[in-house]
Design a protein around this nucleic acid. Sequence first.
DNA 1: CGTGTAAGGAATTCTGACACG
DNA 2: CGTGTAAGGAATTCTGACACG
Lengths: 79, 79
Amino acid sequence: MTKNHPYLDEKVMTIKIVTEMTGLSERQVRYYEERELIFPKRNSSGTRMYSFSDIERLMDIAEKIEDGVRTRELRKDLF
Amino acid sequence: MTKNHPYLDEKVMTIKIVTEMTGLSERQVRYYEERELIFPKRNSSGTRMYSFSDIERLMDIAEKIEDGVRTRELRKDLF
DNA sequence: CGTGTAAGGAATTCTGACACG
DNA sequence: CGTGTAAGGAATTCTGACACG
């Protein structure tokens, strides 16, 4: 799954475009970060910046959550 | 030069990240659009959204301008 | 636990214009 | 011609909190 993709990991999107692309709410996106499931960067002003990888990961997370999986469990799977 | 690249043409970045990635000023980026050299999309609020392709094109434009080429000439080369 | 919302402040973006040349 | 800037408004993002459960 590790594609050799130049722009995939560049953190260039603000949360708004992320919610539009994933269909999730800002609240959900920030919460998944709080649960350490995604790791956006912060620009000089503190605004969260996301990559296309983050978008993909968010959609994956959302699907799992819908299936009843808890964030704690998803966090574990990172290791 | 037409790479088969999934995220290359997605208009997902605001002008701020564009200026950071290209080193250009907002004024320059907007002016090149006025001269019809780049074509960002607008989100529902009117904010300009750019793609990685736009970033590459902007750097190319900037280089030409520095070399003394006029925007009028660059515009012509699009056809 | 996961998500919605109101609250207030800080940072972003936009347009049209004046400036220099 | 190409770019800087001040001006004012509109939209964005952030945090911490209360709510439900």
